[in-house]
């Protein structure tokens, strides 16, 4: 289904993604994918901290009530209980919002889950600017926090297709994972028959020679539009989609930057500590020259507001990615 734009100037509800104007969406891809996996894998269990309906895991709870544990508003305990379940051989998928998982339960993720590589899957909703509820609800630094924890795999999927495939991949992967969630009606950007997500694998979505865009999460959908806009201006832009932030696909990034050293990163997150920092780390470590411009959230607590307003306010749209690329080329 397609979703029309909301009344402008009104604080956005708890949404999922930039669904406005999306040509195609899928309903609750995480919940549906988890049910599919759980049908064949009896070790999968689900947990939430009073956000079942808001993280789409209520579908799993309805289908497998005996394998679902409501933990209540207690995120530290959510992660601890999940770690305990993992240590008895289960594969717990624990859902809450990015902000509550990473800010409130950090020590529990680091020590309870990651130190001993417990097989815990943390599914975190409202990444970046996918809610208009302001500083309390917008997960703007979660990737930076999670990237800094040893043993933890960190994934920011682009769309419904990749999210579904990631659920399947992380269920089969032994070890702790932090997966950013897109909920509700989620855009379908990648063709499910053509795209194949793999943990740790970046995907070159467009070949180009003038500028390289490296993007993650829902920003890849905007980056695809930016590539088309740039092409209209006669600029050849490569696009590398990096949905796994950790382990980072250094090889793919370096191969691209060696060919095209003018790089724009695009992420639904602070421009420090996330994708841009990972790209900078990789290129500096390898001594590969890079000219980098970063599109993302500046280091501030963001305003409340409608999603279109916030995207415009923090310069996170496809036009902003294209403008950064043009600025770099014409400098």
């Amino acid at each position: 289904m397609s979703v029309s734009a909301p009344k402008t100037g009104v604080t956005g509800n708890i949404l999922s993604s930039d669904i406005y104007g999306a040509e195609r969406t899928a309903a609750a891809p995480f919940g549906e994918a988890l049910i599919r996996e759980a049908e064949t894998n009896p070790r999968i269990v689900g947990l939430t901290a009073d956000l079942g309906k808001y993280t789409d895991i209520h579908l799993f709870a309805n289908r497998f009530p005996e394998r679902f544990f409501q933990i209540g508003m207690a995120e530290q305990n959510l992660i601890s209980v999940a770690a305990g379940l993992a240590r008895t051989g289960f594969i717990p998928f624990a859902t809450t919002y990015c902000v509550f998982a990473t800010r409130r339960a950090y020590d529990f993720i680091a020590i309870g889950a990651a130190l001993g590589s417990a097989n815990v899957k943390i599914i975190a909703g409202l990444p970046g600017l996918t809610t208009g509820y302001g500083g309390t609800h917008q997960g703007i630094e979660d990737l930076a926090l999670m990237r800094s924890i040893p043993n933890l795999t960190v994934i920011d999927p682009c769309d419904a297709t990749e999210l579904s495939q990631a659920v399947s991949a992380i269920a089969r992967h032994e070890g702790p994972v932090y997966l950013r969630l897109l909920r509700g009606q989620v855009p379908v950007v990648f063709d499910p028959d053509a795209y194949q997500f793999e943990i740790g694998q970046a995907r070159l979505l467009s070949e180009g020679t003038d500028v390289a865009i490296i993007s993650t999460g829902l920003m890849t959908a905007r980056a695809l539009k930016a590539v088309a806009q740039l092409s209209g201006s006669g600029v050849s832009a490569a696009l590398l989609h990096v949905s796994t932030l950790k382990p980072f696909d250094t090889e793919a990034v370096l191969a691209l930057v060696r060919r095209v050293p003018r790089v724009v990163t695009a992420e639904n997150h602070f421009t420090t500590g996330g994708l841009a920092s990972a790209v900078a780390d990789a290129t500096v470590d390898a001594g590969v020259p890079i000219h980098l411009k970063r599109v993302g959230i500046p280091n501030c607590f963001c305003e409340s507001g409608s999603i279109p307003y916030l995207v415009q306010r923090y310069r996170m749209d496809s036009e902003d990615i294209a403008a950064a690329a043009l600025e770099m080329i014409h400098k």
Partner: peptide
């Protein structure tokens, strides 16, 4: 050692998870 303690406040939550796990099995 079934878990890593020492950062206090971790044990009982993991105990709850294990108790749910063994009961489910």
């Amino acid at each position: 050692f079934e878990m890593t303690g020492g950062s206090l406040g971790h044990g009982l939550g993991q105990a709850v998870g294990m108790a749910l796990g063994v009961r489910l099995d």
